[in-house]
């Protein structure tokens, strides 16, 4: 296999890496760039734990070849807080106990942030359908949905 040399921007910083042609963006984030916040729950786009923003679109990083990210812009959970200042979603998720084991949490936060940027005032149904691709096995989703609603309200009034 011939390796590729790829240039991207990850969380606003330049990131260069070498990858094999069949490596996914998730593989590279985790194994070559040391960003293990994005999780692999299935590798087939069914669980959403690897959610990242690629060129301003929410995607499963397990379904993107790393080589496809050439010249692209990637935003991950590691870039969500501003220094020591948590994003309102992150803060409310802790306050409202919207996580238990926490392994789906990075993907859900990335996806929820993408939703609120598009729709600052989503209904409960809109949140539930937007997050349908993010599996959580611990919480039954109830506190997650409420936390997204609370964070949205907080962001609207900010």
């Amino acid at each position: 296999m011939k390796n590729f040399h790829i240039n991207t921007t990850v969380n606003g910083d330049e990131a260069e890496f070498i990858c094999e042609p069949d490596e996914t963006l998730l593989d590279v984030l985790r194994n070559r760039l040391g960003m293990t916040g994005s999780k692999e729950g299935c590798g087939t786009g069914d669980c959403g734990a690897c959610s990242v923003i690629l060129n301003d679109r929410l995607v499963c990083s397990c379904l993107v070849l790393a080589a496809e990210a050439e010249g692209g812009k990637v935003d991950t959970i590691e870039g969500m807080a501003d220094g020591d200042k948590l994003h309102p979603l992150q803060k409310v998720f802790i306050e409202k106990a919207a996580l238990q084991c926490g392994v789906c949490t990075p993907g859900i936060l990335v996806a929820a942030k993408a939703l609120l940027e598009k729709n600052p005032d989503p209904s409960e149904t809109e949140i539930r359908y937007w997050l349908a691709g993010n599996l959580c096995r611990c919480t039954g989703y109830d506190k997650i949905i409420k936390a997204v609603q609370d964070a949205a309200a907080e962001m609207r009034s900010a």
Binding site: Q90, I94, L99, T105
Partner: peptide
């Protein structure tokens, strides 16, 4: 109260089995 492992889990720092 807020859980002590909360920050690590919402920022992607928490280390799971494969991490």
């Amino acid at each position: 109260v807020s859980r002590p492992d909360g920050i690590d889990k919402v920022t992607g720092k928490a280390l799971y089995g494969a991490d």
